[in-house]
């Protein structure tokens, strides 16, 4: 590890980074609440385990790899921003955006597959069989993964616009880090969603 670090005080935090950290704190409370409720219900209802078996583990595994890799790309973009290397910033951010597209593409494939098998958000097919608890599983599934998907879109857009502005104006390079922080938050949420939704049957 290169030891070029120097402690900063709270007065020295760039406003953009502080704002993103505040946003992240709020997001953790939102997703944390959903995850905790999912766990409590999962422990309560055994049939949720059966429902979890209908998720596509391979797709979830590939998506986890994609998001972890994108986190690495973002942090490399931040490293390039420190050196004010515009070409490398563009390269790493575009790779991250490509990962976002890949993630969303795989998720769309999963949703299509699940909806075609009757596992929808209103859960009409399951309701017809009187499976109300199972419908609740899919409500949680679509809410958590859907909300996460929206954050992936927001993160990719933020990275794109920040990259465009920074490379054009050649100032405020630290905005790359602020947008990157948001992207890492998206990755952290998925780190918890993946095992809970796909792996624990």
């Amino acid at each position: 590890m290169k030891n070029s670090s120097k402690k900063i005080t709270w007065r020295q935090i760039p406003q953009a980074r502080l704002a993103v950290w505040a946003l992240i704190a709020g997001e953790f409370a939102i997703f944390g609440g959903l995850i905790v409720l999912y766990i409590l219900n999962r422990l309560k209802y055994e049939s949720w385990g059966e429902m979890a078996q209908h998720t596509n583990v391979i797709a979830g595994t590939i998506n986890t790899f994609v998001l972890l890799t994108s986190s690495f790309f973002v942090v490399k973009a931040h490293e390039a921003a420190v050196h004010k290397d515009k070409q490398k910033i563009k390269l790493w951010i575009w790779l991250t955006i490509a990962c976002a597209f890949m993630f969303l593409g795989i998720k769309t494939y999963e949703y299509t597959h699940e909806i075609m098998h009757g596992f929808t958000l209103p859960g009409n097919a399951l309701l017809a069989e009187g499976k109300t608890v199972e419908v609740m599983y899919w409500s949680f599934y679509y809410t958590m993964t859907g909300l996460h998907g929206l954050h992936v879109i927001a993160g990719a857009l933020a990275l794109f616009f920040v990259m465009r502005k920074v490379t054009k104006t050649e100032e405020n390079y630290h905005h790359i880090e602020a947008a990157g922080l948001y992207w890492h938050m998206v990755d952290i949420v998925w780190i918890f969603l993946f095992p809970l939704i796909y792996l624990i049957h």
Partner: peptide, 27 residues
């Protein structure tokens, strides 16, 4: 009074590749 430093290199840069590989192993 300085609230917005323009130099983002306030921290060291850990070996990101090493951390990424560790994350993949844990995954």
């Amino acid at each position: 009074e300085v609230l917005v430093p323009q130099d983002p290199d306030y921290h060291g840069h850990p070996n990101y590749l090493k951390i990424y590989i560790s994350l993949l192993i844990l995954f």
